[in-house]
Amino acid sequence: MKIAIVDGQGGGIGKYIVEKIRKEFPEQLEILALGTNALATSLMLKAGANEGASGENAIIFNIDKVDIIIGTVAIVAPNSMMGELTPRMAEAIAESRADKLLIPLNKIGIDIIGVKEEPLPHLVEELVKKIKIKEG
């Protein structure tokens, strides 16, 4: 199974997600780090992603080549991440046929009703459980 993790700005969230997934699935999953910038991609690669690419074209080109897309809810919101995530990136991610596992961190003014606020480590644990279910 191939997973894309999309992150931007400092790349800390993507790095954390890659570390946790790599720990749970040492060899089974291929992780593609897609950063809105080179710093985010670099951190995800250092955390254990198999491959990485940066920028709008790289995200648009690669997003349909994966089974699962992971990131915060911001990855489907145009101009999020202080403008780093372009409308074309958000559209490509949202329209991809890949399953999307989105972490509901509210840094972009989108509240998802019915979702309780949890710290990032708890949310990533839930993410890992979902991947285990999808992997079968």
Rank of each mutant, 00 (worst) to 15 (best):
N106W: 11
I131S: 03
I69A: 02
G55D: 01
E117P: 09
G109H: 09
D111P: 02
A94L: 15
I69Y: 01
L34S: 05
L34W: 03
M44P: 06
I110C: 13
E91S: 13
K116N: 14
E117Q: 12
E30H: 15
S80T: 04
A94R: 14
R88W: 08
A77S: 10
T36D: 07
A94T: 01
E84W: 11
D99S: 09
I112Q: 04
E117L: 12
N57S: 10
L85N: 10
I68R: 07
A40K: 02
E126A: 13
G83C: 07
I75W: 11
R97E: 14
L39W: 12
L127A: 06
N79A: 12
E125Y: 14
I70N: 00
R88C: 06
K100P: 06
L102A: 05
G35P: 05
L123E: 08
A38H: 12
G55M: 05
G114E: 04
H122S: 14
G114I: 02
A40T: 07
S42E: 09
N62I: 03
E84L: 06
D99Q: 08
P121M: 08
R97M: 11
A33M: 09
I63Y: 08
E126V: 12
T41Q: 15
M89S: 08
E51C: 01
K132I: 11
A58P: 00
G114W: 01
P119C: 08
A77G: 01
E118V: 07
T72A: 05
I70S: 00
L123C: 08
G114P: 11
A49Y: 10
A47Y: 08
G71F: 09
I103D: 06
G83D: 06
D64N: 15
L43T: 00
G114L: 01
G35I: 05
F61T: 03
L45M: 14
E51G: 02
I59L: 07
L43P: 00
S80Q: 04
E30Y: 15
G109K: 13
D111L: 14
A49D: 00
E30S: 13
G71P: 00
E27A: 13
K100Y: 12
E95H: 13
L32C: 04
D111Q: 15
L34D: 06
M82P: 01
P104H: 07
E126P: 05
N79R: 11
I112T: 12
I60P: 01
E56W: 06
T86E: 08
R97A: 03
L39G: 02
K100M: 07
K132Q: 15
V124N: 04
